[in-house]
Amino acid sequence: MFQTDGDVNTELLRAAAAEANRNYKIQSNDVLSIRFYTNKGEILVDPNNFLRQELMQSSGGGGRMGNQQIGQQQERQDYLVFPNGEVKVPMIGFLPVAGLTVAQADSLFQSRFETYYRDTYVYTQVINRRVVVLGATGGSVIPLPNESMNVVEVLALAGGMPANGKAHNIRLIRDIASPMPIVQVIDLSTIAGVQKANLRVMPNDVVYVEPFRRVFNESLRDALLVLGAVTNVLTSYIVIKDIVN
């Protein structure tokens, strides 16, 4: 599975990793978690309004009040980025976000909500970023909670390096659905191999840990399958022969 003769398109991998370092760009079909707050996010640091009550008391109750907070403990709201790159947000409608970093999207949402609320604070996360781990680990989908995760962290989340896995032959595959996927063979068995490899992962990467082949077990299994098929044929032949006779 995923056999290669050494590294494939290593330079493209390095270029893609360098681009990733400039921050993840929102894409179509991403799912965004967007939280909106007023008064510069006051509710985040003063969830029980203690600070506001103290200010009101010290000013004799005549302190200037800002906009009413958008919920005391606001639940997470998830929004899908449509194939055209737009996301539909309550009150402000459709906004183009594909190609923007999360920080740029925050600024865009904030500027639009300023029409309705004063000193808006917006916090956005991309919650569907993930990496697929296959091979000796058995297979799992690992969410990426941040933008700086590496292969070692992903393998740890997948259960660690399995005993039947080849630590010297791990493949990091990027753009697997494209006509020319980017592949890097990673050697985690030595410090030199770790230092040489580009371990940075990106959303939708595939990490494949090649398992050790147990030739004897595989050959025995195949032989048993053939023997079983031959036995079934002979049994059927004998039964039919007895019926005929």
Rank of each mutant, 00 (worst) to 15 (best):
I142S: 01
I142A: 02
I142Q: 04
P143W: 07
P143Q: 14
P143V: 11
P145F: 11
P145R: 15
P145K: 14
P145W: 11
E147Y: 03
E147G: 07
E147N: 10
E147P: 06
E147W: 01
E147K: 03
S148H: 14
S148I: 13
S148L: 10
S148Y: 12
M149N: 08
M149L: 15
V151E: 07
V151P: 09
V152F: 06
E153G: 02
E153W: 04
V154A: 05
L155P: 08
L155T: 04
A156H: 04
A156M: 05
A156D: 10
A158H: 02
G159F: 04
G160M: 04
G160W: 02
M161Q: 09
M161A: 06
M161E: 05
P162Q: 00
P162Y: 08
P162W: 05
A163W: 08
A163T: 10
N164D: 15
N164W: 07
N164P: 02
N164H: 13
G165F: 03
G165P: 00
G165R: 03
G165W: 04
G165C: 05
K166A: 02
K166R: 15
A167R: 14
A167E: 15
A167D: 12
A167L: 14
H168C: 05
H168M: 08
H168E: 14
H168W: 05
H168S: 15
N169A: 09
N169K: 11
N169I: 02
I170E: 00
I170A: 08
I170M: 09
I170L: 10
R171P: 01
L172Y: 07
I173F: 11
I173R: 09
R174T: 14
R174F: 07
R174S: 13
D175Q: 15
I176K: 11
I176G: 07
I176L: 13
I176Q: 12
A177H: 11
A177L: 14
A177N: 15
S178H: 11
S178R: 13
P179Y: 06
P179L: 06
P179E: 12
M180D: 12
M180C: 00
M180N: 14
M180H: 12
M180I: 10
P181W: 03
I182Y: 06
I182C: 01
I182Q: 03
V183P: 06
Q184P: 06
Q184N: 03
V185F: 04
V185N: 00
V185H: 02
V185D: 03
I186Y: 03
I186C: 09
D187H: 11
D187K: 07
D187L: 10
L188N: 02
S189F: 01
S189K: 09
S189I: 05
S189V: 08
T190H: 05
